[in-house]
């Protein structure tokens, strides 16, 4: 390849790659703020476990986000903390649910039973959700504008290089873990 050709090729390739790797992720995801601030660390330091608020029901269904009622068990009245006051004023007193946004909502055709993983196989919550319980603030949710799926499904890095074990909740991530444990089975075990 002659030098002018190489220069013009590079001059085209570099901006194209930059747009694809740097600009496109910013465009494709929109950021939505959570309705309330929440400090997981403070709650964990009180000795609370994940399952105290994010519970698996008796029939095996996962409740996901805690109900306002479960928050009101401790935070029924206003105090000094502005976040607690906002909770009581906007949700506990009117008796409405908090519209939390999920970072881990799977596509509609995926079926993930928390009971089988957490209760049955004793998989730690942090294996898939990371050190979420140590965070001092809830992250805003980044939602893919095309699919509507949260960014955590793919993972924070578009290239998926140098990622932590818990980052990413794609089908390939599920399969990798199942394969390692000799638990490969049918498509319809996890799809509906």
């Amino acid at each position: 390849m002659k030098l002018p050709a190489l220069v013009s090729f590079t001059a085209g390739l570099v901006p194209a790659l930059a747009a694809g790797w740097l600009l496109f992720p910013r465009l494709i995801y929109k950021t939505e703020a959570q309705p309330l601030p929440f400090n997981h660390k403070v709650h964990a330091e009180q000795g609370m476990a994940c399952g105290d608020c994010h519970a698996v029901a008796e029939d095996g269904r996962f409740a996901g986000m805690p109900t306002t009622e479960s928050c009101a068990g401790c935070h029924a009245e206003k105090g000094e903390n502005p976040a607690v006051n906002a909770l009581v004023e906007r949700y506990v007193e009117p008796g409405v649910e908090i519209p939390w946004l999920s970072n881990a909502r799977q596509p509609d055709n995926a079926y993930f039973p928390h009971a089988a993983h957490v209760t049955g196989e004793k998989v730690a919550c942090a294996r898939c959700h990371g050190p979420h319980g140590e965070s001092t603030a809830v992250r805003p949710v980044q939602v893919n504008r095309l699919s509507g799926y949260p960014r955590d499904i793919w993972g924070p890095s578009i290239s998926r290089l140098r990622r932590e074990e818990w980052q990413g909740m794609k089908m390939s991530d599920c399969i990798a873990c199942h394969r390692a444990g000799g638990r490969e089975s049918a498509c319809i075990d996890c799809h509906k």
């Binding site: 095996g60 269904r61 039973p113 089988a116 049955g120």
Partner: peptide, 11 residues
Amino acid sequence: QAARAKTSAAG
């Protein structure tokens, strides 16, 4: 699937 989840929850 629901029956399996119920089974797991019951241990």
